[in-house]
Write a protein that binds this DNA or RNA. Structure first.
Lengths: 187, 187
DNA sequence: CTGTGAAGCTAATGCCATTAGCTTCTCTCG
DNA sequence: CGAGAGAAGCTAATGGCATTAGCTTCACAG
């Protein structure tokens, strides 16, 4: 029998993610996680090596969540439809969880803990561009351009960086069209 | 006569900016600024209200610096030449000062301290697009798209977010061309 | 020559992460 | 059934940091 109220690394990350969603990255503190999980702060070290590591695991959780969400969004679609769906899904995720998105480091690829999760997310983007007949570095460039657009827009919107939210839907539609035209123009 | 070794708010921000450049935002601590300015930590409060305020002032400094740099870059140019110069200047600034760029909040527009500096920077972008005959909200959208691209690329590059730096120049050139084509297509 | 205000200092508080070392509980194996 | 080992939790202690309070000093103005 597994004990009932036992804390696990997963539960610690759950609590941490909730804190990030509610109060942003600055709100993620071991003291707060301890309170929320009903445990003394030093006890957390039985499940997590440090605050830094906990932050990394939260990042993994978010990256995996995004990957799942985006995969669902593009399943069964291809070409412009798939790209459009992916871009809308990306924005929708960030609008729904703005603080969470701001907490994910932009450079997960070289991180020991987050590397795999980051690469999987990139894979989804890369795969979505299949069918455009891009070869070698062309595909890499196209993926990068896509990432620049979705991340650029999302990170600004997540932090309220556009003045008024007036017409943001239009701006995003224009970005999507710009990207699709660009893909087409290079074929 | 003004005393020689007197600390001033400006000197405090100087030291803070150096710390950010060297060790990133996390490295910006009042204790470190105190050491670097040769003063006891509490003495800083004679010049700065809090660590948060100091961070905001560092942000202002960077925004002003960027504005100056970009203004120089586009002076005397117009149309595609001006846009290209602005985009290259943006990337060049961030490559030269990556940690500094990461320290600037993405939402300076609504901040009491940084609002004016943020708006001036946006003004430069907006003005660079003069001459394309964009009317009303068209100009707003075009400015936003430009910002999305330059910020998206720069923030990823600044944190080493692209896998290898292979071919990043090409990727950026493609983004510039994409944006220019987009501007042209809408005229 | 004096006194006032700014700039600096030391002492103290409180929050947080992290470490050390002890206790307790649970499951496994004899 | 009965240890005993290992995991998970706890309290106490340390050290870094921001911030506040209240004192001292010093340059300058009158």
């Amino acid at each position: 029998m597994v004990a009932r109220n036992r804390l696990t690394p997963a539960k610690v990350v759950d609590a941490a993610l909730d804190l990030v969603d509610e109060h942003g990255v600055e709100g993620l503190t071991l003291a707060a996680v301890a309170t929320r999980t009903g445990v003394a702060a030093p006890s957390l070290y039985k499940h997590v090596a440090s605050l830094a590591e906990l932050r990394a695991h939260v990042g993994v959780r978010v990256l995996e969540n995004m990957t799942e969400w985006f995969t669902d969004a593009v399943l069964g679609l291809s070409g412009d439809e798939a790209v459009t769906a992916l871009m809308h899904a990306y924005r929708a995720y960030v609008v729904r969880h703005p603080k969470r998105y701001s907490a994910v480091p932009v450079d997960p690829l070289h991180d020991e803990i987050q590397g795999a999760a980051g690469r999987k997310l990139m894979e989804v983007m890369f795969a979505t561009l299949r069918g455009y007949g891009l070869e070698g570095s062309e595909a890499v460039h196209a993926t990068r351009r896509l990432r620049v657009i979705v991340h650029g827009f999302a990170s600004i919107e997540a932090e309220g960086g556009f003045g008024l939210p007036e017409g943001l839907d239009d701006t995003y539609d224009q970005l999507i069209r710009m990207y699709l035209d660009d893909l087409r123009g290079k074929s």
